[in-house]
Amino acid sequence: MSGLRYVYAICRPFDAALQAQVTGVDGAPPGQLSHHGLIAVVGTVPEGDFGEEPLRRHLEDLDWLSATARAHQAVIDALTAVTTPLPMRLATVFRDDAGVRVMMEEREAAFLRTLDRLDGRVEWGVKIHAEAEPAPAAEKPEKAASGRDYLRQRRQRNRAHEEMWESAEKFARRLHDTLCGHAEDARLHAPQNSALSQESGRNVLNAAYLVPRSESEAFVELVERVKGEEPGLRVELTGPWAAYSFAGLEDDADDADGVDGVAREAGS
């Protein structure tokens, strides 16, 4: 069965060696394919799994998708430790090296512009989850003496929950404004669905921040200081990642299709 060329990322040539133990998708170690001033980090994968029809079926298999995402992310993480990669979309494949080089030729200018913009920078993710406050076990709800009492108690409970969510959202806005002041750029992503993320509580902040490597330690310390500051709120910091949220090649709409943030949590 023939093999296809799987592309993990585009980057500039680099001298440092990747971690020896890193293997990519389907267990194949990543290699490099050069074209002008760019490097494509590639691997070989079986057409029986990554051809158009089998890949469509595999993408509905959560176990297969998760394992592939982890292998993809392992390569991206290893690259991030030694250079600035532009991650390609999960399961980006070409028939052969010639196809990869054609893609690099067509998008060379956009790749170089984005690499210049992101050089020496990494992405940090910050999420805030608000936990619903459970009623203390010792406090049993007051038995309603009438329908009017029942409605009053219900309005009080609703008001308490609304105030809790408002407080959580105010905290999230304050933290986001503070972190923006310590980052070069920021992106607000849609709140995560707890049923999909399997995280408890309501996601009130899901943001990414572009930070110079040299300033990452200070950024991390800033986030760590606010953890536990607000009861009922859980602050989560992830990274450093390749700059997934900032790698969109905004000057060319077609370019945005290929450079994409893989599901980082699936790969972690």
Rank of each mutant, 00 (worst) to 15 (best):
A78S: 14
L79N: 02
L79S: 02
L79C: 01
L79A: 02
T80R: 05
T80M: 04
T80S: 09
T80Q: 02
T80Y: 06
A81V: 10
A81K: 12
A81S: 11
V82E: 00
T83C: 12
T83Y: 09
T83F: 09
T83V: 13
T83H: 07
T84K: 00
T84F: 08
P85C: 02
P87M: 11
P87L: 05
P87Y: 06
M88V: 07
M88F: 12
M88Y: 04
R89Q: 07
R89V: 15
R89P: 00
L90S: 10
L90M: 13
L90T: 11
A91S: 02
T92K: 03
T92A: 15
V93K: 06
F94Q: 08
F94A: 14
F94E: 01
R95S: 15
R95K: 15
D96V: 07
D96P: 02
D96K: 06
D96S: 12
D96M: 08
D97P: 04
D97H: 11
A98T: 09
A98N: 02
A98G: 12
A98V: 04
V100I: 04
V100L: 05
V100P: 01
V100W: 06
R101P: 01
R101T: 10
R101D: 03
V102N: 08
V102R: 04
V102E: 07
V102D: 13
V102T: 13
M103Q: 10
M103R: 06
M103S: 12
M104D: 09
M104Y: 14
M104S: 12
E105C: 12
E105R: 13
E105H: 15
E105Y: 15
E106K: 13
E106S: 14
E106D: 13
R107M: 14
R107Y: 15
E108G: 11
E108V: 02
A109M: 02
A109F: 09
A109V: 02
A110M: 00
A110K: 00
A110G: 09
A110Q: 05
F111W: 05
F111D: 02
F111S: 00
F111I: 03
F111A: 07
F111V: 04
F111T: 04
F111M: 05
L112V: 11
L112Q: 08
L112Y: 04
R113S: 03
R113E: 02
R113V: 05
T114S: 10
T114R: 09
T114C: 13
L115E: 01
L115Y: 07
L115V: 09
L115H: 11
L115D: 03
L115R: 03
